[in-house]
Amino acid sequence: MSTVGIAIDWNTYADKALRGELLTEQEALSVLEADDDELLAILQAAFRVRKHYFGKKVKLNLIINAKSGLCPEDCGYCSQSIVSKAPVEKYPLLEKDVLVDGARKAMEMQAGTYCIVASGKGPTPRELDHVIAAVEEIKSTMPMKICACLGILSQDQANRLKSAGVDRYNHNLNTSAGHFAHITSTHTYEDRVTTVDHAKASGMSPCSGCIVGMGESQADVVQVAYALRDLDADSIPVNFLNSIPGTPLETLKHLNPRYCLKVLALFRFICPTKEIRASGGREVNLRSLQPLALYAANSIFVGDYLTTEGQEATDDHRMIEDLGFEIELCAL
């Protein structure tokens, strides 16, 4: 049953989240269906939850595109996939010194987490050894949390990354189980869940999120939020599709900033204690409303993404300062 037109006290949703109670599917949908006139009230309720668990601190993350293109997967959103015609730079795994230098740049930008991301279905033995060597050097020389995102992992590979010092492993569910086959055919939703489980079993912190705007329904957004709660992902990057020319999803451009903010509020209500990150596509889809994202989210990426540009880190620092929030420095 739709709740459009029904007056809702959004603070009751915050109350449920603070008690650890899960919103019903109807309640969750009501956040996404709400009239735009309700946006500030929704964000205020989400902020109650965010402030309770995280205060006004903002976690910063920085990505390095450690291996670009050359991917055999057919993910429809990705400019690096085998089906993409986007003119992206293609190169094998970066030299170890470049990966280590990227961590230093992350520290300069006040990022607490450095994310080493490589295209491909999963790492080869040589690639895994290479990343491990870089991680060990970073960990021996600077106080930096490291997140790896190398594709599908075996349990042994996950264990090796943990032993090397990788703190977190990212592998996004991307969308709901029911919508997944519309996005990718070369691996399954279950493959992704298994990799997150392997990361958890190794002792690495699980990071998994979604991409909104890939032709999914509002019910799909709700279902992937529930799934990420069930998966107990510690960090949840909420990406908003940046439809890149040359990719199968290049024509999908239906998101607006108000809906994106409702999505972030929904994730805060459903996963109240977790790091919610306003991630890829933030600048393109939230535009001038980016600062409002931090009333629900408590984390952002600074710098560039994989094949698309982000805004200047100094602009992000200023946005956080102007809000009266503060950057959460790395504490290992």
Rank of each mutant, 00 (worst) to 15 (best):
A199K: 11
Y305E: 07
T314M: 06
E283I: 11
Y169L: 02
N285M: 10
V49R: 02
Y77C: 01
V98C: 06
H198S: 03
C147W: 06
K200I: 15
V98K: 14
C78T: 11
N61R: 05
H179M: 06
D15G: 03
R229Q: 09
F240W: 00
E137M: 11
E309G: 07
N11T: 07
I64W: 09
L294T: 04
K121D: 08
H317Y: 13
Q110M: 13
R318L: 12
I327F: 04
L94I: 13
L39S: 06
F180R: 01
F54N: 03
T308Q: 08
V58D: 05
A278L: 07
A265C: 09
D156N: 14
E38G: 00
G303V: 03
C271I: 09
I116A: 05
D234L: 10
G310C: 12
L231D: 12
R126N: 14
H52P: 09
I82G: 02
A133L: 11
F269D: 00
G246K: 14
D230W: 11
M214C: 04
G178S: 14
T175H: 04
A164V: 08
Y91E: 13
G203E: 12
L294V: 06
E95M: 10
A297R: 01
E108R: 15
P125T: 11
L18P: 13
A46W: 04
D37E: 14
C75V: 11
T184N: 13
R192E: 14
D304T: 03
T141W: 01
Q223V: 00
V221L: 12
S140W: 07
A265M: 05
L99Q: 07
Q290A: 00
I8W: 08
G5C: 03
P92M: 11
